Computed example of a mutant assay.
Amino acid sequence: MDGSDRKYEEAIQSQPKLAEAHYHLGLTLYRKGSLLAAQPHFIEVANLAPGHPAIWNAPPFRQYGTVEPETQEPAQDGHTGHQH
């Protein structure tokens, strides 16, 4: 782990809900070829910053496809999933 990795890890430890820190750590790991290590950070970003255009449109992030929330809340009609 180099200096940038450590700084992002420190930021995440002090502010676990800081989407940008997860994104940049994921991006740093991705660029180093550590795809499995990057993936959980990209998923966390998806949960913390849904629809953030700069994050969601980044090529490394988009590689993981649509990220579904960990749990789906049932709709008022009792269904879960994509509603039309």
Results as ranks from 00 to 15, higher is better:
Thr80Trp: 03
Ala58Ser: 11
Ile12Ser: 00
Lys7Cys: 07
Leu25Gly: 08
Pro59Lys: 01
Tyr8Cys: 03
Gly81Glu: 03
Ala54Tyr: 03
Arg31Gly: 09
Glu20Asp: 13
Trp56Tyr: 07
His52Lys: 12
Asn47Trp: 14
Glu68His: 10
Tyr30Val: 01
Ala54Trp: 05
Thr71Glu: 08
Ala46Arg: 03
Ala49Ile: 09
Val45Gln: 04
Ser14Ala: 13
Pro16Gln: 02
His22Val: 03
Pro60Gln: 06
Lys7Glu: 15
Gln13Trp: 04
Glu73Leu: 15
Met1Pro: 15
Gly33Gln: 09
Glu10Tyr: 06
Ser34Leu: 15
His24Thr: 08
Leu48Arg: 01
Val45Gly: 02
Gly33Lys: 02
Ser34Thr: 08
Gln76Asp: 14
Gly78Val: 03
His82Val: 15
Gln76Met: 12
Leu29Ser: 10
Gly26Pro: 08
Glu68Ala: 12
Ala75Gly: 07
Ala54Lys: 07
Ser4Asp: 12
Leu29Gln: 15
Asn47Val: 08
Ala11Tyr: 02
Val45Arg: 01
Asp2Asn: 13
Asp2Arg: 07
Ser14Tyr: 09
Leu35Val: 15
Tyr64Val: 01
Asp77Ala: 06
Asp77Gly: 04
Ala37Glu: 15
Phe61Met: 11
Glu20Asn: 11
Pro40Ser: 06
Gly33Pro: 10
Val45Asn: 05
His82Cys: 09
Gly78Glu: 06
Lys32Cys: 04
Met1Ile: 10
Gln83Glu: 12
Ala75Gln: 11
Pro74Met: 00
Gly51Gln: 01
Asn57Arg: 11
Pro53Asp: 04
Tyr8Lys: 04
His79Trp: 09
Ala49Lys: 08
Tyr30His: 14
Ala37Gly: 13
Gly26Thr: 09
Ala46Gly: 06
Arg62Asp: 00
Ala75Phe: 05
Thr28Asp: 08
Ser4Ile: 15
Phe42Gln: 07
Lys17Cys: 06
Ile12Asp: 00
Asn57Trp: 05
Pro40His: 09
Glu68Trp: 11
Ala11Gln: 10
Lys32Asp: 05
Glu70Trp: 07
Tyr30Pro: 04
Gln76Cys: 09
His84Ala: 15
Leu48His: 03
Lys32Glu: 05
Asn47Ala: 14
Ala49Phe: 06
Pro60Ser: 04
Pro40Trp: 05
Arg62Cys: 01
Tyr8Met: 02
Met1Asp: 14
Ile43Ser: 07
Leu18Pro: 04
Tyr8Arg: 04
Thr66Asn: 09
Gln63Ser: 10
Gly26Tyr: 09
Gln72Ile: 06
His41Asp: 07
His82Phe: 12
Leu35Gln: 11
Leu18Trp: 14
Ala75Leu: 14
Thr28Val: 08
